Amino acid sequence: MIPPVALASHLTDQSISTIHHALRAPRRRLTVVILTHRALIHSGTENNEQISSTFESSEFTIPVRDLAREVVAIEQDIPPDNATGEEYHAVYTALTQTHLPYLDEVNAVDYLQNRKIVCPDRNLIALAVVASITSPVAQLIFSASAADLYDRSESSEDSLTDL
């Protein structure tokens, strides 16, 4: 069996360090997962050739406004139709000014700034593989609730058994 990190490095033209850096921001990880999911649904996932062609062409696109609504809906645990207002505008701005240009730079997406649309690019699958493997670990490490479980006043042996 090929280790997942080695598999990801075979699927991309970017270094594994670059991939991890691209996925450092939770909103970028979420964007990668959403785009991968939407592209796989669009492709029908019936065979590998169909999936590959979806990720290698720009036949599947998503408007940034729809992507922003979906991000807000997931982050706020609300229906996408209710993802409006200040939070929507903050996410939309962060996507257009920071996250999508960075994902475009590492060839995970093709971000057409003038048209405000996004489509998968050749490295999206590699980033999605790494995101699916590392996201649970990152959530555990950086979660405030996990940190609250660790009480520094107890011995480390007791604290570990409490988890």
Rank of each mutant, 00 (worst) to 15 (best):
S156V: 14
A128F: 13
L40D: 03
S145A: 14
S145P: 12
F142S: 14
D162F: 08
P4F: 10
N48R: 01
T93W: 12
V32M: 08
R27L: 13
I2N: 02
T134M: 03
V71Y: 04
Y150K: 05
P80M: 02
D81I: 12
I34V: 14
H42C: 01
R122V: 12
V32T: 13
L40V: 15
E87P: 03
Q113S: 11
Q50F: 03
L160W: 15
D77G: 05
L35P: 09
E87M: 13
H89D: 12
Q14M: 10
R152N: 04
A146S: 15
E59V: 11
V91A: 07
V5D: 10
A39T: 15
T84C: 04
R29W: 11
A147L: 13
S15P: 10
I141S: 03
F55M: 05
L7S: 01
A73C: 01
A147C: 10
S153F: 05
P136E: 00
A147Q: 11
Y88L: 10
T93Q: 04
E49R: 08
T36E: 09
L112W: 02
I34M: 11
A83F: 01
L160H: 11
H99P: 11
V72E: 03
T61W: 02
V91L: 08
H42W: 03
N123Q: 02
A25G: 02
D148S: 14
A147N: 12
Y150R: 08
G85F: 13
E75D: 06
D81V: 15
E157A: 15
C119R: 04
